[in-house]
Design a protein around this nucleic acid. Structure first.
Lengths: 219, 219
DNA sequence: TAGATTGTTAATCGATTAACAATC
DNA sequence: TAGATTGTTAATCGATTAACAATC
């Protein structure tokens, strides 16, 4: 029998949510042919403290070198690994409406080592066609397709009312659901990883800030 | 001379970012004809503590009543107000690509009291046409249009390279920029409210979790 | 070696939770 | 009135920052 758990006292959610941002900045630095960077320099670029950067990275092990800083390519590689970009994850988009198609046409997946392999919909007019080189299949074929093709991730862009049922089905054939449907899927109810995304929440935050900025002046 | 500031010791960002979620749950409760709700009941529904709900709401004043709880419609109205849904904000979409059109076709804006009035692009083939009843204009007309039509919000869905220049222009004619471009606009550099949104970050978080869930088993 | 910068511990800060008096 | 539940203060918890010894 092996050891019980790897997790080094379980990395906090706050840290995990910052990883993609590090990933983006490091990708940019590589493009600029930057070879090394210190936590202080990166902190200025990103608008965070150097302490936070060192603390964050050390949750996963020592990626830097005293007196030198961090090797940009090496660090980028390590963070990519943490985020699973080298796992060759495969994704499908469930719901070929405007949002589903916008996601399908973006280079977001490719850039992160994920293959977006197909779309699924109920619309007979769409089934059998393709979009940006990706086939659109009937939702009836979804489960079988995912199991046979080792699909890891389902991007859920169906109408609210269909979301729960679809998530139940997907729980049986994928590892994670990226949910754009305008309803929250309670992660406890599904035996897979669920990430709910509510784009409009950020729009409302923006409105809150606009409103507050301007009401201050009136007082 | 009036008082210096309204702000009741400035509501924390953590609280503000939770408001849209309360808003969504309350909208749902109204649909279900629920008249009143206690913080305990709502906490179970949302998977947070009752303490947090009461604490959050009290940043903005007493919306409840001892011994009774919260009137759903009243509370929904108060939160709507905080989020500016009754301000009649007007938005334009800058960039009529797949994402821009997906946003333009969604009911997200209407549902939150925001009028999405037009799209802008550089593509001559699109200029002069309309999409979901919204006109598509040349980006050359952007500034003048925003000023003349009292546009409050610009949704930025242009390619990365054009984002900075566009944001500088928009700073002169709108109150807030909702930035989907794959680059971060430093809010300090622009004299308007900027909300950067990186959809793919949430996808990467999902990948991180999938990867960690499954690697645990191997140990 | 001297200088730089990490890794890591300890101190601080802020956010969350618990508790309960106020009051409907 | 008695019961329920808020508003609010105090206690706890966790996350961020500061400091510095380790070391490249």
């Amino acid at each position: 029998m092996r050891r019980i758990k790897e997790k080094k006292t379980e990395v906090s959610n706050a840290v995990v949510k910052r990883l993609p941002r590090y990933y983006r900045y490091l990708t940019e630095l590589i493009k600029q042919n930057k070879l090394r960077i210190s936590s202080t320099e990166l902190s200025k670029l990103m608008g965070v403290t150097a302490s936070q950067i060192r603390q964050d990275l050390n949750c996963f092990g020592g990626f830097g070198q005293q007196g030198y800083g961090y090797n940009v390519t090496y660090l980028h590689g390590k963070i990519s690994e943490l985020l699973g970009t080298d796992e060759g994850y495969r994704a499908v988009i469930v719901g070929a409406g405007n949002l589903g198609r916008a996601l399908a046409s973006s280079r977001m997946f490719d850039k992160r080592g994920i293959s977006c392999v197909a779309l699924f919909d109920t619309d007979e007019k769409l089934i059998g066609t393709s979009f940006y080189g990706k086939p659109i299949y009937s939702i009836k074929a979804l489960k079988e397709y995912c199991l046979e093709n080792n699909v890891d991730i389902a991007v859920l862009t169906v109408p609210k009312d269909a979301a729960f049922e679809m998530a139940s089905l997907l729980s049986q054939c994928v590892k994670g659901i990226w949910n754009f449907a305008n309803t929250e899927l309670n992660p406890e109810e599904f035996p897979v990883i669920v990430e709910n995304i509510h784009i409009a929440d950020s729009l409302m935050t923006l409105c809150y800030e606009i409103r507050n900025e301007h009401s201050e002046e009136e007082i």
